[in-house]
Amino acid sequence: MNKPERRPRISREQQKALRFEELTNAAWTLFCEKGYESLTIDEVAEYAGYSRMPIYSLFGDKQNLFFHVWKKISLELMGILLKGCKEGATLNENLRQLAENLLQDQANKDSHGASIFYVVQSIGISRPDIQEKLRDLAEIHLQGIKTMISYSALEPGQTLRSDPEIIALNLIAMINGSSTVEFQTRRHFQDADYLHTLYKAMALN
């Protein structure tokens, strides 16, 4: 009789990472169903198959849990926005790719991503520790766009309108602003040509 195959043991750090992932995924799923205010730590823990203690040991409280939910979502979004942007491609081409990626992401999502952004921003107003984490996260996004600008090639006769970091700040502000308007109005009023034209005007002379 063959013995059942033994499952490989995982380290404490791997167990911690797994719990972290499962709890943030559970919090996001329930947030999409119930919103933030009515959702409790106990409900998140039960949905993920844990007691409440791992949430307190990993995150400290509900506010920090939802910061990490937003961090996970926003980093995934940055990966989506920069997908297909290539080192050595022209900045014009990479800005076009950025515009198309943004519209594709918006078309595939509902309003929950924008909702959790506002929830976490509101939490940060009264929580300096979370506000600092939000600044650190914003710096990661800034460096991602700045790096894309820096590794892109310029076409003959083109120059950058400003320092890559300034351009990146302006692009992020434009992306955030347009996303806010679309979230508030529930209307998609942009297309890739429109965004590409705006991005070029902000980045290139």
Rank of each mutant, 00 (worst) to 15 (best):
G124D: 06
A89P: 09
G124N: 04
Y118M: 15
G113I: 08
S115R: 14
I125Y: 12
I123N: 07
A107W: 12
I116N: 01
E76M: 09
K83S: 13
I125N: 08
L81D: 00
Q121K: 15
R127V: 05
Q106I: 12
R96F: 12
P128Y: 08
G84D: 02
N101G: 02
V120M: 04
Q121S: 11
S111R: 10
R96K: 13
A89T: 04
F117P: 04
Q106D: 14
N101T: 02
T90C: 04
P128D: 08
L75T: 10
L75I: 11
I116P: 00
N108H: 15
K86A: 07
L98M: 05
M78E: 12
I116S: 01
K109F: 13
H112S: 15
Q106A: 14
Q121I: 06
Q104T: 15
S122R: 11
A99S: 08
A114I: 05
L81H: 02
L95Q: 05
N94K: 06
S111L: 15
G88A: 03
S126P: 06
G113W: 10
N92K: 13
Q104I: 08
L103Q: 03
Q106R: 15
C85I: 07
S115H: 08
F117G: 08
E100D: 09
Q106V: 07
C85F: 05
L77F: 12
I116M: 00
I125T: 08
G84K: 03
I123Y: 02
R127K: 12
A114G: 12
D110T: 10
N94Y: 01
Q121M: 13
N92G: 13
L95G: 07
I123K: 05
G79Y: 02
G124P: 02
S126C: 10
I80P: 00
I123A: 07
G79H: 02
L82N: 03
T90V: 02
D105H: 15
L75A: 07
S115M: 15
Q97N: 05
L91A: 02
M78T: 12
V120A: 01
I80Q: 13
G84M: 01
L82V: 10
E100W: 00
I80N: 10
L81Q: 01
L81A: 00
S122W: 04
F117D: 06
R96H: 13
L98F: 07
K83M: 06
R96V: 05
K86M: 06
A107M: 10
N92H: 14
N94L: 03
K109N: 15
Q97K: 12
I125S: 05
L77E: 14
Y118V: 11
E100T: 06
E100Y: 05
F117C: 11
E87C: 04
L95V: 04
G79F: 01
V120G: 01
L95F: 13
C85V: 07
Q104A: 13
S122H: 09
E100R: 02
N92Y: 14
G84E: 00
I116R: 00
S122M: 11
M78C: 08
C85N: 06
Q106L: 15
S111Q: 14
A114W: 12
L102V: 04
Q97F: 01
Q106T: 11
G79Q: 08
L75M: 13
A89R: 09
L81K: 00
K109P: 10
G113V: 03
L82I: 09
Q106P: 01
D105M: 10
L103F: 06
M78K: 08
K83E: 15
C85A: 13
T90N: 07
A99T: 01
G79C: 03
I123E: 09
I125K: 15
